[in-house]
């Protein structure tokens, strides 16, 4: 996947048209994810030394409407702040699309949870504010999110949406902090050549009350 670039090339555009067509049949099902996707696993011997992007192995399947909701929720979970950009700016929407479109059991379970959750979110948004979730202001979005953002303390009628929110947050953060911008935000400074392993810096040792070794 290539989370960094938000660019849409011709190949991807064609793929999205195909994916959108595939999604219609999925959306018509009683339960999301009940129909097998036209997706193949990447197999036990994929080329590893390569830079992949969403859609390289299997078609993406989120509808345009689902993408709009996904973008709004991902950016509510990881908004722009003084340190770093919002989730959608590093390709998290495509990453979530790749995830829930994947042909593996775990991802198929997440697919049902995410698609059901997005639908619940839109219904709840219309019920409370007569608008789509993406069109709500941050305060109104938060009033829904506050009810479902803590799985342990969510009220019983919000348990299932709270499970969705937790899964969605895991995907959003997993995709976000996998990128270089995410690394910079969280303070991951590895994946670089060192000629010697320096051990923890003095500031770290002092903070932990450890003598310098």
């Amino acid at each position: 996947m290539n989370l960094e670039s938000g660019k849409l090339d011709r190949r991807e555009a064609i793929r999205m048209v195909f994916a959108a067509a595939a999604t219609i049949s999925v959306l018509n099902q009683q339960s999301f994810g009940a129909t097998p996707l036209p997706a193949q696993p990447y197999g036990t011997d994929a080329l590893l030394r390569k830079d992949y992007k969403p859609g390289d192995f299997w078609p993406l399947t989120l509808s345009d409407e689902q993408k709009v909701t996904t973008r709004a929720l991902a950016d509510l979970i990881l908004p722009e702040d003084d340190t770093s950009v919002a989730a959608s700016k590093v390709g998290v929407v495509d990453f979530i699309d790749e995830w829930i479109s994947a042909p593996y059991e775990l991802q198929q379970t997440d697919r049902k949870r995410v698609l059901d959750g997005l639908r619940w979110l839109e219904a709840e948004s219309r019920k409370r504010f007569l608008k789509t979730f993406a069109d709500l202001n941050r305060t109104d979005q938060s009033s829904i999110a506050d009810d479902i953002c803590n799985l342990g303390s969510a009220r019983s009628e919000f348990k299932i949406p709270a499970e969705f929110f937790a899964a969605f947050r895991n995907l959003t953060a997993g995709g976000y902090y996998a990128t270089q911008k995410g690394w910079k935000d969280i303070g991951y400074v590895g994946n670089v050549v060192l000629f010697q392993f320096p051990g923890p810096p003095r500031t770290v040792l002092e903070k932990l009350g450890l003598e310098k070794n």
Binding site: Y42, F57, E105
Partner: peptide, 12 residues
């Protein structure tokens, strides 16, 4: 970020 599914475990 350069791998499918952020390089996470799969049955493959």
């Amino acid at each position: 970020a350069q791998a499918p599914l952020a390089a996470s475990n799969t049955p493959d």
